[in-house]
Amino acid sequence: MNRLSPFNVVSLTFGFAFLYLPMLILVIFSFNSSKLVTVWAGFSTRWYGTLFQNEAFLDAAWVTLKVAVMSSTFATVLGTMAAYVLVRGGRFMGRTLFSGMIYAPLVMPEVITGLSLLLLFIGIGMDRGVMTIVLAHTTFSMCYVSVVVSSRLATFDRSLEEAALDLGASQFDAFRLVTLPIIAPAVISGWLLAFTLSLDDLVIASFATGPSATTLPMKIWSSVRLGVSPEINALSSILIGIVSVGVITASLMSKRHAVRVRREEQAAQRAT
């Protein structure tokens, strides 16, 4: 391969333009001084200012952050366990059901997941609020974590664990000292994925929450239903900015790491 035909170039250009133009326009117009969001009236950061004075948004952001940190942490622990069971657990009763429950939430419409969890919380008489959102988010994002981690575990050289056992490590030590450090990048990306999923979620949180807790997406939702607003543009730009910086940094770091490893390997081969 390695040769791009004109058709390839065109499809890449249009494809990425399609993916990025809407977000780019959103970011640009968040600096628009006019309240009319589709008419450019000069550069201004006033909407960022009003955003940071909006108590309701800040409260919602705080709730969202709390929920995201808690649920992604639980989801990472549970999801890693589930991945380990899927890849290394061998046969046990109800394995098919288990793997079904891991994969199904990935494609389950959010309305159904949300509705079913709400009915559960009501059925057992649980007070709805931050805790119920955390439970709901943990449940669906642990499945994402487990998919990310299990794909790493599947390519993991099993003899590394056997070597640890052979050298006298207990099962737990072998996991703690060998497996976990090696799959750590996958576990971390699993955590980040769970975190962003929780940050983004509107539908499931709307079902799972009670009057006491409003998350940022719910707040955004109730205001965008009324149309485009410059404040939401500013908020969106901030979120897009954070994600872009994060993703770009991560990919640069992993690229640099790969280059260094390759160079060191080549040096080691030449030395002999």
Partner: peptide
């Protein structure tokens, strides 16, 4: 990158377009 960006915001971006 878009996959990590809020779903809601990406849908909302089209309202203005």
């Amino acid at each position: 990158l878009p996959f990590w960006t809020s779903f809601l915001i990406r849908v909302y971006a089209w309202v203005g377009i």
